[in-house]
Design a protein around this nucleic acid. Structure first.
Lengths: 144, 144
DNA sequence: CATAATCATAGTAAAATAATAGGAAATAAA
DNA sequence: TTTATTTCCTATTATTTTACTATGATTATG
C-alpha cells in the first residue's frame, strides 16, 4: 500500500519546475541535483509527463523542461495517476468492473471503493500551486 | 498503490469467520473452499491473526479457528494494519519520522499525510460487524 | 492408533520496482 | 562548422516484493 518512488519523484519534479521563477527551460540534471535523485531515472519519469503534455521541452544546449500550463491547473491526482496508474487500492475496481465473479456480492469491495474515493478526494483537491505556495512560505520561515 | 492479496484475503477470512452462525471452530480448509483461496496461503495469514489474538484456535480433529471477540470489536483498519503493516502511503511517515533529511521542509510529505489520514479515517470506521450486516442483507436480497 | 487439524519453517517462481547504460538526434554557442 | 549540451529512445539488470507451494512436526478426537 505504498506510492512508488516514480510517483513521489514525479511530484517533486513537477514542484521543482513550478518553483522556477522565470520562464526558462530547466535541465533534468539540475532537477536531479536539487532533488538528489538519479538523473537517468528522472528522465524516464519526465518522458511520461512530456508525452502527456504536462511539460514542454526543448533539446540541445540551453534546453530542458518547463511546465506546459500554470501550476494551479495541475492536481496531485493528475500527476500521480499519470505516473502510478489508477490509484484504486484493488485491481478489481479498475477497467472492467465485472472482471471478478464475486463483485456483485462482495462487501469487501465496498471498503476498497470507499478507500479509493477517500484517496481521490484528497489528491484531486491539492494543486501544484497549493504546494508551491506552501513551499515558498516554508522557505521564508526558514530564512529567519 | 495496491492492497496486497494478504490484506484482502485476511479481511475475507475474518468476515467468513464472522459469518459462521454457531460457536464452533471453522477449519482453514472450509474457509479456503468457500473463498476460493489456497488453504496453505490462508494458513500463513491466519497464523498472524492468531498470534495477535484476533482469532482463537484448537488443533486436531474438530479443530479450527473462530473469532476471539465479537465482530463489532474489529475494525477493518486493525486487520489490514496487522497483515499489511502501516497503511501510510510512503515509508518516511513510518516509525522514525526523521529518517528523511528533507522531512522538515518537504511539502509533498503533507500530501502523503493527508492521504494516510483519509485512508485511516475510512478503514477505522468500518467494523467486521458492519460488513457482516451488509453481507447478510445482500444474501437475503439475492434469495428473492 | 488412525485421522484430522493446526503449527512451524523453508523454498521458489513470477512480477514489480528502482534503477543503469549507451547512444542517436537536436540545438546553441564557440 | 565544430563542439558541447541536452533531450530522446531503447534495452538491460539487480533487488525486492508478492504470492504461493512444500514438508513435516505437533496436537486433539474418535
Amino acid at each position: 500500500m505504498k506510492i512508488s518512488t516514480k510517483g513521489r519523484y514525479a511530484l517533486r519534479l513537477m514542484l521543482d519546475l513550478a518553483m522556477s521563477p522565470g520562464d526558462e527551460y530547466i535541465t533534468i540534471k539540475s532537477i536531479a541535483a536539487r532533488q538528489n535523485i538519479s538523473d537517468k531515472y528522472l528522465e524516464q519519469i519526465i518522458t511520461v509527463l512530456s508525452r502527456a503534455g504536462y511539460v514542454k521541452s526543448t533539446r540541445g544546449a540551453q534546453g530542458g523542461y518547463k511546465l506546459a500550463h500554470p501550476a494551479d491547473t495541475y492536481t496531485v491526482g493528475m500527476i500521480l495517476r499519470l505516473i502510478e496508474g489508477n490509484l484504486a487500492p484493488v485491481a478489481c475496481m479498475e477497467d472492467d468492473p465485472n472482471q471478478c465473479p464475486r463483485c456483485a456480492d462482495c462487501v469487501t469491495l465496498d471498503v476498497w471503493k470507499q478507500v479509493g474515493d477517500a484517496i481521490n478526494q484528497v489528491v484531486d483537491h491539492i494543486t501544484l500551486a497549493d504546494l508551491l505556495k506552501k513551499q515558498l512560505i516554508r522557505q521564508e520561515a526558514a530564512k529567519v
